[in-house]
Structure formats: C-alpha cells, structure tokens
C-alpha cells in the first residue's frame, strides 16, 4: 500500500491568474520520510496546508491513507494568560485529542518539553524557546499515521532539535510517514528518503533525496533553471 498524495492543481490566490501550485503530482510511500525543498514563496507551505485540509485545492485531489496531523506552527491557540498546564489541554483538544488522551500523555508531554518547573506559570512568562518546546511536545503527542511538518524545527536550541530528530526517527521506525519542509539541506539529507523540489508552485524534481538536493543546490550556484 502506498500513501498517495496527488495534487494536480493547487489553490489559487486572490489574483485572477495566480496559481500557488500547479501540476504538482507525486506519491509518498507509507513509512518514508519525505522532504519538500525550494526557495521562499515556492508553495511549500501552501502544499502542506492543502494536505492538512486548511486550504482546499480548486482542482485536483489529495488522498491520504491514515490519520494525518499537521505541525505548521507550534503553539497555535495558546492563550497567554493561561498556565502551561491549561494550555496543554486546550492545545491538545484543538489538535483533536480527547481530555482522556491528553491526561494519559500529560507526563510524557511535560517531560519532552522540559518545562516542568514552569508548567503552572502563564505561558506569557515563557521564553520563546520554551513556548516552542511546549507547543511541539503537544503536537508530537497526537500520534498520527502521517505527520506533516513545516519549518518548525529551526526553532529551539540544539538540544531540543536533537530531541526532535530522535522523535522523527522513532516515528519512522514505527512505520509512520513524515512529510517535512526544511531549509536546512543537512536535515533533509540526513532524515529524508525522498524529496521534492518546488519552484514557483511547480514541481521541478521528485525522487531520491540526495540527487534532488544536489539539483536544487546546483541551481542556486549556477542561477539556472
């Protein structure tokens, strides 16, 4: 069985003839880690939003096999005046978890975030790094079959980034699919089996990670394509 994500034509913006995504069509095998690369404004976030049902493509289709969770921004829906504890429950339910599930995973979430001491403090007193850690910990505990991640890994300190990397590897070993966007080619190289390169809303290349990254980097130095 393969996870098939076929996007023929993506969403159109307010401009009459601007297609944020056009003729983007590819498949992501189940259990693989898939990287999306491309320069700013190439449509990576838009593509992820289509995958996570935030945007709906005007034409074309997307099929996903399994429960999909998206991590497009960490801490979406945190309320500044509420404590870390209250926000874990609030954020958990926004991401579709029941109270029971969150209670079960509560210790795990707090542990992974590393903000135990401040869990009863309002989150507005958190440093931005702590904020991100807590948000990420809640999101990662959703336990989806397919995890969609936008550039959120770039935040947080080195220790936390390493923790996240470990988490993704765990995910992969458990047979889950990860689709991620990153501007760090090292990250994509290390973590992804396959990659797709988007440019101005069009798919330039898709396939094994290494050659795709090479092609992308090559185009940057020569300025061609």
């Amino acid at each position: 069985m393969t996870l098939k994500a076929a996007i023929m034509r993506g969403k159109r913006s307010v401009y009459e003839d601007f297609w944020a995504l056009d003729e983007v069509s590819f498949e992501v095998p189940v259990g693989s880690t898939f990287g999306l690369i491309g320069s700013n404004g190439s449509g990576k976030s838009t593509l992820l939003k289509c995958l996570s049902k935030i945007y709906y493509p005007e034409s074309g289709s997307i099929s996903a096999y399994g429960k999909l969770a998206a991590l497009l921004e960490v801490g979406s829906g945190f309320h500044h005046e509420l404590s870390g504890r209250e926000n874990i429950f609030l954020n958990g339910s926004i991401l579709g978890m029941s109270k029971k599930e969150v209670t079960q995973k509560f210790d795990e979430i707090v542990d992974f975030s590393g903000v135990e001491h401040f869990i009863d403090q309002p989150v507005k007193n958190y440093s931005s790094g702590m904020y991100v850690r807590l948000g990420f910990s809640v999101a990662i505990s959703v336990a989806p079959d397919i995890l969609v991640v936008d550039e959120v890994l770039a935040v947080g300190d080195a220790e936390f980034q390493e923790k996240c990397r470990q988490k993704f590897i765990e995910f992969k070993n458990a047979g889950k699919t990860v689709i991620l966007v990153s501007h760090s080619m090292d990250t994509v190289q290390q973590m992804c089996d396959k990659a797709a390169w988007l440019k101005n809303g069009r798919l330039v290349q898709v396939g094994e990670a290494a050659p795709t990254i090479q092609a992308y980097l090559g185009s940057l130095t020569t300025g061609s394509v």
Partner: peptide, 11 residues
C-alpha cells in the same frame, strides 16, 4: 481574532 489558528490547524 483566531486567524492564526484557522490558518494553521484543521478543526
């Protein structure tokens, strides 16, 4: 008021 949420999470 919740635009950030609507644009980043499906619910």
């Amino acid at each position: 008021a919740n635009a950030g949420l609507v644009q980043k999470v499906y619910f």
